[in-house]
Amino acid sequence: MENSSAEITALVGREVYSNNGVFVGEIEDVRLDLDKQQVTGLALHQLNMELFSGHVGDGRGIMIPYRWVRSVGDVVLINSIVERLSSPDENDSSEVVV
């Protein structure tokens, strides 16, 4: 596996921001593809409800595809979630799981 389990669990609790600097949420868990030995998604909670109102109820989270991740450091940067929610592509319409 490319990442050790310690590195993967270190993602939990990190804040997620869009590439525009907007707070999106906090990583609660990761989704793994054990056959390919890679991270495939991030489960977020503590969401920015201004972004997700009408998409997520109170106390719910979302799952975003890991391919949206641009960089991982003290925080995780992802492609802008605002544009994805307001005008999803045909291929991306089921990407965000609420």
Rank of each mutant, 00 (worst) to 15 (best):
2 E>C: 02
3 N>M: 14
4 S>I: 14
5 S>M: 00
5 S>I: 07
6 A>S: 10
10 A>H: 14
11 L>E: 14
16 V>Y: 04
16 V>E: 08
17 Y>E: 13
18 S>I: 06
19 N>F: 00
20 N>D: 12
24 V>W: 01
24 V>P: 05
25 G>Y: 09
27 I>C: 07
27 I>D: 05
28 E>G: 04
29 D>Y: 06
30 V>P: 04
31 R>Q: 04
31 R>K: 11
32 L>T: 10
32 L>F: 02
33 D>G: 01
34 L>W: 14
35 D>C: 02
36 K>S: 08
38 Q>T: 07
38 Q>F: 14
40 T>Q: 04
41 G>F: 05
41 G>T: 03
44 L>A: 05
45 H>P: 01
45 H>I: 06
46 Q>A: 03
48 N>Y: 04
49 M>T: 00
49 M>Q: 05
49 M>W: 08
49 M>S: 06
50 E>D: 08
51 L>G: 09
52 F>Y: 06
53 S>H: 01
54 G>L: 13
55 H>C: 06
55 H>K: 07
57 G>P: 02
58 D>R: 13
58 D>S: 13
58 D>T: 08
59 G>A: 07
59 G>Q: 01
64 I>R: 00
66 Y>E: 03
67 R>F: 01
69 V>T: 12
69 V>L: 07
70 R>P: 02
71 S>N: 09
71 S>M: 11
74 D>F: 10
76 V>Y: 05
77 L>H: 02
77 L>V: 15
77 L>R: 03
79 N>P: 00
80 S>I: 10
81 I>M: 12
82 V>Y: 11
82 V>H: 15
83 E>Q: 14
84 R>L: 15
85 L>N: 10
86 S>R: 10
90 E>G: 13
90 E>F: 15
94 S>D: 13
